[in-house]
Design a protein around this nucleic acid. Structure first.
Lengths: 338, 338
DNA sequence: CCCCGTTGCGAAAACGTTATCGATAACGAT
DNA sequence: ATCGTTATCGATAACGTTTTCGCAACGGGG
C-alpha cells in the first residue's frame, strides 16, 4: 500500500500555551511560569496547570521559546556531516551530557567554506545555548554563544579546543612502517586548513627524516580527508612502475578507501601493501583487513568537549586547550614488505 | 590558561534581516523575498540585496523563520540518544539526504515513555518539515508533519515504517547455535514495546522448538536493550551451577555487555560461552572477540527512511512498510561447546 | 485621454513563546 | 480606618522572520 502524507489525516491542531491557559482558567503568562518553574505562582495554581499540561500532553514549542527567551537548555553539535568521525564524537558528547538537563541537537547544514559560521548564525542564541564545532573551516568564528572546537582550524585560535597529539601519533605510525622495513612509504594527507592535517604531515616527515628514509614527493598527496580523492590518489600511486610498499593515510576513511582500491587491484593487504590509518573509528576494526591505525579517543574527546561546554554555559571557566594522547593500534593491515 | 566565556568577549551583535534591509536601502519584506527567492523583486534589487547579504554574511535565524513560515527545509531525526544503533541510522539518513536541499537536525530529548511525542511537539511544524523516529515508544503518535518510523512500536501502526526481518534473523542466529551443538541457550530479550523485541524472541522460540531443544525459562530475560540490565542478567546466568553454553542477545550492545561479563569472569569466548548479537553495529566487529551477529543493513535502513520521508515532504506517496533482509555474520564469538 | 493590468515594493499582521511591569487582593501594623 | 508589604496573577510588548495585501508607478490598448 502506498499512501501520501495527507491521505486520510486530519490536520493535527498543535496544543499551545494558550490552550492550556484556557483549559486551566489562567493566563498564558501564568502557564509559562509554571512550565519554566518560575517563582510567583501559588501551589494550587501550579497543581491545576500541571494537571492540564499532563492531560493534554503539552510540550513547548522550541522555536518560539528560543526566539523570545534567553536560553533553551539545548546544546548543539555542529558538524559537516554525519560520518563515522563525527558520529563517534557525538556518542561521547551525548553520554557526557546525560543528566545535565540539556537536550542535544546535532546539526548538519551545508558543506563549503564557513558552514559552521552559517550553522552558528542560524541556531546560535535562539535555538542553542552553546555549541561544539567539529572540524570548523574558519579560524575565528564570531560567536554569540559559548563554543568549543574539536579538531580545530590551523592557526592560533581564541576558541577553547580539544584535539590529540597529532604529531606524535603520525610519527608513531610512520616509524611503525619504517621498522617493518618499508622504504617507499606514501602519505595521503588530510585537510590542510585543519591543525590535524598539518600536524600529521609534520609527524610523517619528521619520522621519515629521523630514520633517514627519503620521501618521494610524488607519494605525498592531499586528499582533504575525502575518500573519493584518496581512492583516486591511491589508484595512480599503485599503478606506478615502482609502487609504494606502504601507505600512511591521515585518517581512517581515506585509509579504508585506499584499502578498497588495493584489494580491487588484486593486491594483498598487508603483503603487497601495508596501510596505516588515523582515528580508530569502529569501521577500522571492521574492515575486510582490520586496519592498523593511530587511535584517538574520539568518544572521550567528545565527552571532554561537552564537559568544557557545560562549564562555559554554566558561567564557569574551562581549560583552553585539551590535547589527548594517541596510541598505535596494530592490526592486520601492516606487515614486512615482501 | 583557564577562561570563562565572557572574559574579553564583547557581545556579538547578530546581523538580522533589518540590518541587511537598512544597508541595502530596502524594506525587510524585500530582503526576505530575496533570501527565499520569492517572485516580485526586480533583478537590480535582488543583486543589490544579495551583495549586502554576502558582504555581512547574513544567515537567517532558524527559530524565527520556522515560527512564522510554513517550512524550514530542515528534516529531523528524533532519537532517544546518540548510541551506536542510532548513529548508524543517522549516517545512512544523512548520506541519503545529501543533495536534497534539506538540512538535518538530530535531536535527543529526554528518555522516558513518549520522548518522541515530546520531541515532535517541540520541533515539529516550526523547526522541522518532517522527521524520522528511531525506536518510538508509543504506537501512534499524532503528528503535524510527515513522519517515518524505524524499528517501530509493536502493534498495527498508521505510520510508514522501516525495519528488518526480525523473526528470520533471530531464527538464523538460534539455529546457528543449535547446529554448533548448543542445548542450553540463553536469550537476552529486547524492548518488549518494540516490534523488533517481540519478533526476535519469537524467532528464538520457534527455532528452539523446531529443533526440539527445550527452552529453560530461567535463561530467558528481558534487558530492554540496555547493556546494564544485560550485564546483570548475564552475571547471574553465568553463575548458575549449570550455566548456559551460549547466549543469543537481542541486540549487539547487550551482547557486548554479556561478553564483557563473561571475559571478566574468566570464561573463554567462544569456548566456554558462545555469544550471538543482533544489528551488526561497527562495534561488533571491533569487540575483543569479534562478535557473531545478525546483520541489519542499518545505514541502508536509515537511507530508505530518508527517501520515504523526502517523498512525503515532497507531497508524493511512499511505501507504507519496508522490511529489509538480515544475514548472519559469523565471526569468532561462536563455536561448538566443549 | 482614460482605464486597467502588471510590476515592484513596503507596511503591518501574524507565529508561540518569555519577560516586564502594573494591578489587585490579602493582611498585619499603625 | 489607613497605609505599606507581600503574594499572585494578567496585559502586553517584544523576539526575527514570512506572508498578505495595498499602493504607486508605469504602459499599452481602447
Amino acid at each position: 500500500m502506498r499512501r501520501g502524507y495527507d491521505a486520510g489525516m486530519e490536520p493535527v491542531a498543535r496544543v499551545k500555551l494558550a490552550d492550556v491557559a484556557r483549559l486551566a482558567g489562567v493566563s498564558v503568562a501564568t502557564v509559562s511560569k509554571v512550565v519554566n518553574g518560575r517563582y510567583g505562582v501559588s501551589k494550587e495554581t501550579v497543581a491545576r496547570v500541571q494537571e492540564v499540561i499532563d492531560e493534554v500532553g503539552y510540550a513547548g514549542n522550541l522555536s518560539a521559546a528560543g526566539l523570545r527567551g534567553q536560553r533553551t537548555n539545548v546544546l548543539g553539535i555542529l558538524v559537516g556531516g554525519f560520518e563515522p568521525f563525527s558520529a563517534e564524537l557525538m556518542k561521547g558528547a551525548w553520554a557526557a551530557a546525560e543528566g545535565s538537563g540539556y537536550e542535544l541537537l546535532a546539526h548538519s547544514g551545508g558543506h563549503g567554506h564557513g558552514w559552521e559560521r552559517r550553522s552558528l548564525a542560524r541556531l546560535g542564541g535562539t535555538l542553542i545555548d552553546g555549541a561544539i564545532l567539529v572540524t570548523p573551516t574558519v579560524l575565528n568564528t564570531a560567536t554569540g554563544v559559548p563554543v568549543v572546537a574539536i579538531d580545530p582550524h590551523y592557526g592560533p585560535s581564541s576558541l577553547p579546543t580539544v584535539d590529540s597529539h597529532n604529531v606524535a601519533g603520525a610519527r608513531a605510525a610512520t616509524t611503525h612502517l619504517i621498522e617493518l622495513g618499508h622504504r617507499r612509504v606514501a602519505f595521503l594527507g588530510g585537510r590542510h586548513d585543519l591543525d590535524s592535517g598539518r600536524r600529521r604531515e609534520e609527524g610523517f616527515r619528521t619520522a621519515m627524516e629521523a630514520a633517514g628514509v627519503e620521501i618521494d614527493e610524488d607519494l605525498v598527496v592531499e586528499t582533504n580527508y575525502e575518500p573519493e580523492l584518496a581512492a583516486h590518489a591511491a589508484e595512480s600511486m599503485l599503478s606506478l612502475p615502482e609502487r609504494p610498499t606502504a601507505i600512511f593515510a591521515a585518517n581512517d576513511t581515506t585509509a579504508l578507501a585506499a584499502m578498497d582500491v588495493a584489494l580491487d587491484m588484486g593486491l594483498s593487504v598487508p603483503y603487497d601493501l601495508s596501510i596505516v590509518g588515523f582515528d580508530d573509528i569502529p569501521e577500522a576494526a571492521a574492515a575486510p583487513v582490520p586496519l592498523t591505525t593511530v587511535r584517538q579517543p574520539l568518544q572521550e574527546m567528545g565527552a571532554e568537549a561537552m564537559h568544557m561546554l557545560l562549564a562555559l554555559v554554566g558561567g564557569e571557566a574551562c581549560e583552553q586547550h585539551v590535547r589527548m594522547d594517541t596510541s598505535l593500534v596494530v592490526r592486520e593491515s601492516t606487515a614486512e614488505p615482501r
